[in-house]
């Protein structure tokens, strides 16, 4: 349970003179729900894209699921799920077609695809909408669906980039239930968010300010350390130092 699935050492991404992510060093343990906090433009997405093999780091080292982020990106991709900030299912395909497409791409057999589709639709209670175009679903459902599609191949780690932005508190709560369910099956979750109440749901959180990781611990320890009553206070205290504006 305590083996490391993500290990980053001084991971850095520069765009010209601009250092988007500066010498990030951290590790994530198997089965953990790891919160990656930061204001807009702090470098959360940049860090996540490097770990997913979508972006080549400028320097530093990192391994994800035991594979190197420079050389073994295709192996990493086989072992992770990813849900980006932008909604990225095909809006002009139906719920079932989207499930079938991604399951097929990840190499599930026809029988597995059929089982998974039924299971997914059950889990979401989407029976009436299974044959509807994804376009017609409410945002909360879309995000839950894209999360379940992102872990359709039972990856070791799932990366979630602000998965709950723009939805109401009830839908956010339901979304976190899904993350817990996934964690119970052994999937490690790496979640970025800027909702501080959500950070309380994480086992450990790191807080990024201007490309640097400024704090990393369990929510309880962080509150103790900064003598704050809530994660929000912890974050406000750190974020006040930020010089960067939105990207």
């Amino acid at each position: 349970m305590n083996s490391t699935v993500i290990k980053a050492e001084k991971l850095t991404k520069r765009y010209g003179d601009f250092v988007a992510a500066n010498e990030l060093t951290f590790d994530v343990r198997a089965g953990e729900i790891f919160g990656f906090l930061g204001a807009n433009g702090a470098g959360k997405t940049t860090a996540m894209r490097m770990l997913c093999g979508l972006s080549v780091p400028s320097s530093g080292t990192a391994s994800v699921a035991g594979y190197d982020v420079y050389k073994q990106t295709e192996n990493i991709k086989r072992n992770i799920g990813y849900m980006s900030q932008k909604f990225s299912l095909y809006e002009d395909l139906t719920v079932m077609e989207n499930i079938g497409f991604y399951a097929g791409i990840y190499g599930l057999t026809d029988k597995e695809i059929k089982e998974k589709s039924v299971q997914l639709v059950d889990q979401l209670g989407l029976h009436d909408s299974a044959k509807k175009l994804v376009r017609s679903l409410p945002l909360g459902w879309k995000q839950k669906l894209s999360f379940l599609v992102a872990i359709i191949h039972q990856p070791k780690i799932v990366f979630l980039d602000e998965p709950t932005s723009g939805v109401d508190p009830v839908a956010r709560r339901q979304f976190w239930d899904l993350i817990y369910q996934a964690a119970d099956t052994g999937i490690t979750a790496f979640v970025t968010t800027h909702y501080m109440d959500e950070s309380e749901y994480c086992h450990r959180v790191s807080i990024m300010v201007d490309g640097n990781i400024r704090a990393l611990d369990s929510p309880a320890n962080l509150k103790k350390h900064f003598s704050a009553s809530s994660m929000d206070e912890v974050f406000q205290g750190l974020a006040r130092e930020a010089k960067r504006k939105e990207d």
Partner: peptide, 13 residues
Amino acid sequence: EIGTIEQINVTPI
């Protein structure tokens, strides 16, 4: 533009 290509790029396709 839609962003679906990023989802494709993160698969082992």
